[in-house]
Write a protein that binds this DNA or RNA. Structure first.
Length: 255
DNA sequence: GCGACAG
DNA sequence: ATCTTGTCGC
């Protein structure tokens, strides 16, 4: 079980996010190059060992899964809406270090700037690593949903059905996309850092292969859940994992 | 006080 | 996220 965090510390984490978003918002421009290798990040949870973070590498052109890395460990923080990055990013960072390839882009399960302080987990990670990052979330966290299309008008998928607007300024923070024929609910695509909203949309929709999630996140999701199951069944031991045990000393500020 | 609330 | 049985649809 993760530690409970006092309200005083929560305020400090919120201040850190304001600092992060200040820098990240100035980085939201087109990368200027097409991605070659793309990382997908997702986490599942094992009852025994805690978080199971998986980083995968996908070849953007072929869609091939080239590599993956795992990090496990008990998160230091409980889940608090808006503060997900402080819970999961340390594990993601560890998983990333086990990767054998360099990469151009990160696709992360969760939000980017479509966040109360414009500092979702994709923003934290993209800014810290100095790479383009995109958040792909399955549920809205913040903002007003604006529909630019009726659901019935979406014949060809993926279909951009609307966007999420900043309640203060009306600025577009994320696009809502129906990834395939089956899904009733959209996915939310927002830039994390070092990329703009339009490029984020194009890039992610081009990696939708009939699945609800884009290929990188799709694979990371499947692998992390699978490993969490094996761990809880005792079929797999933490020391057998590629990427090893998670060191949680990164991304967590001293509070 | 009430509703919202990534994973 | 995870816990869980049945159930709707291709």
């Amino acid at each position: 079980m993760s530690m409970k965090t006092p309200y005083s510390n929560i305020r400090k984490l919120i201040e850190i996010q304001k600092n992060i978003s200040y820098k990240a918002l100035g980085s939201l421009r087109p990368p200027g190059y097409a991605p070659r290798l793309v990382v997908g990040l997702d986490a599942a949870y094992s009852r025994i060992y805690g978080g199971v973070a998986v980083a995968v590498i996908i070849d953007y052109v072929s869609g091939s899964l080239l590599d993956y890395s795992v990090a496990i460990g008990e998160p230091r923080l409980e889940y608090i809406p808006g503060l997900l990055a402080f819970r999961e990013a340390p594990l993601f960072y560890t998983a990333l270090q086990g990767l054998r390839h360099e990469y151009d882009l990160l696709v992360i399960d969760g939000h980017g700037i479509s966040h109360p302080r414009k500092a979702g987990i994709a923003t934290h990670i993209g800014l810290a690593l100095g790479k383009p990052s995109i958040g792909v979330a399955k549920k809205k966290l913040y903002g007003n949903e604006v529909y630019i299309k009726k659901l019935g008008e979406c014949n060809v998928h993926p279909c951009t059905i609307g966007y999420v607007a900043d309640p203060e300024t009306g600025e577009k923070l994320a696009y809502m996309v129906l990834p395939n024929k089956r899904s009733r609910a959209p996915i939310y695509i927002s830039p994390g850092a070092n990329i703009d909203l339009e490029t984020a949309l194009k890039t992610v929709t081009s990696m939708l292969k009939g699945t609800r999630l884009p290929l990188p996140t799709y694979h990371a999701d499947k692998i992390s859940k699978h490993i969490a199951r094996l761990l809880d069944r005792g079929v797999l031991k933490p020391n057998q994992l590629k990427g090893g045990l998670g060191r949680l000393d990164h991304f967590m500020p001293r509070i």
